[in-house]
Design a protein around this nucleic acid. Structure first.
Lengths: 229, 229
DNA sequence: CGGCTGATTGAATCAGATCAACTGCTGTGG
DNA sequence: CCACAGCAGTTGATCTGATTCAATCAGCCG
């Protein structure tokens, strides 16, 4: 909780990569600490946002809910990742809601103080531009998947990503199946059925949250939309 | 085509708002001019991108196409709008494809030269951050609409936007109905049916590309998902 | 006057959502 | 320590919004 501790965190944050210790010190100086239980709301879509957040521990989901209560998860952020920046640079309302998926500690960077610091360090602006660009890229993917691909293809793509990030053919799901279905833009029932079908057809072997990829190429074809379940 | 002419353009570009003449001069100095016919490809998704573009005249659509040939239009950009920036700041591949919807003139800003200039002008970095943030916001909306709303709601929302931007209850569609359907994540047949239904129910009156909103509140309820067609 | 492209309409089909019932696990309190 | 409440997950039956396929129509250009 002391300054030194915060410095350790900030040094490991991609967004702040390559910044001087003195500058990180200044950043740490403006950050406010927050501690939240599981399932607590950080902010709602439409709330006025006067700063952004950084995940120090735990996990946070960013999502949109519909009038009828359906929910679509846009991102899940973990250690060292930032969210809520959009409200800092454009408009002042958060475009989506944020809620903790587990007990979490967050750092909050107030807009005004952050912008003042940003003006002094062009490198940080570039990092921020890179971050937002990557996020745009991921949104392009999401739109592509939602609009151009079916649920099995999306799920296959997700599995391939998980496998690639861990560099193994076996991994365990990073979200409960209910949350995963909301992330993929579907519902638990459909996810369950697709999972079963993939298993039946020998593409994967699933055991609870443990997934083993059996037929990597088959999954890739499915993800590309070349083949179907 | 001469420098003066380019300066006139640059001065009217939101992204470059508030920048000094000298700086705009420098920007104009690195820009390359391009002239394209209708239906020409500016770049394909996955192409290496070593710069971004600004629309000087005409219109350009940014889209993703699926393996099976379906296409989803992410944005349509007109005068003074920039596209392809993602490749400048993150990775080097364009996440989506770009094609002219009409004969167009573009300005191309090479990455390296642009980044050098950017480093000298923090204000431009802020404008760029604002631009990307706005774009992120629009993507959040798109995902919300695709995943959480049905076609009638998306179309109603689009109409309300068009009406709001022109401040009139009558307007004409900015895209052909086929292109509009690709923008809304559906197909021409469905769009046609929904349009007819809206007309039948007295929400709008359509005549070719001319649309008149009859029942604004009804449309709003439809867009929100409160009511259905 | 053809012939092309965009738009419309109808019929059939399909992917996925909804509704409902059931299983199994976990954690809590008697 | 067991019972049971409660929630995640699964499975089945049904429904529906939207796509697909097919045919027709309207406008426009050469």
């Amino acid at each position: 909780m002391n300054t030194q501790h915060i410095m350790d965190i900030l040094k490991r944050v991609d967004l702040f990569d390559g910044l001087s210790d003195a500058y990180l010190e200044a950043l740490g100086g403006i950050a406010r600490h927050m501690s939240l239980d599981k399932g607590q709301t950080v902010f709602f879509a439409g709330d006025a946002g006067n700063g952004f957040y950084l995940v120090r521990s735990g996990r946070v989901k960013i999502f949109k809910s519909s009038f009828s209560g359906k929910e679509h998860i846009l991102h899940v952020f973990g250690f060292g990742e930032a969210f809520g920046e959009v409200a800092v640079f454009a408009g002042d309302k958060f475009p989506a809601s944020a809620m903790t998926l587990a007990a979490s500690e967050l750092l909050f960077f107030p807009r005004k103080a952050f912008l003042e610091l940003l003006a002094k360090e062009p490198e940080l602006a570039l990092q921020m531009l890179a971050l937002l660009s990557k996020r745009l890229r991921s949104f392009v993917n999401k739109v592509e998947e939602l609009s151009l691909k079916e649920v099995p293809a999306r799920l296959a793509g997700h599995f391939l990503l998980l496998a690639a990030s861990g560099n193994t053919s076996t991994f365990h799901l990073d979200l409960s199946k209910t949350e995963l279905s909301k992330y993929l833009g579907t519902i638990p029932e459909t996810l369950s059925r697709v999972l079963k079908k993939m298993d039946d057809q020998g593409l994967i072997h699933g055991n609870g949250a443990e997934i083993e990829i059996i037929d990597m190429q088959g999954l890739e074809e499915l993800a590309e939309g070349v083949s179907k379940l």
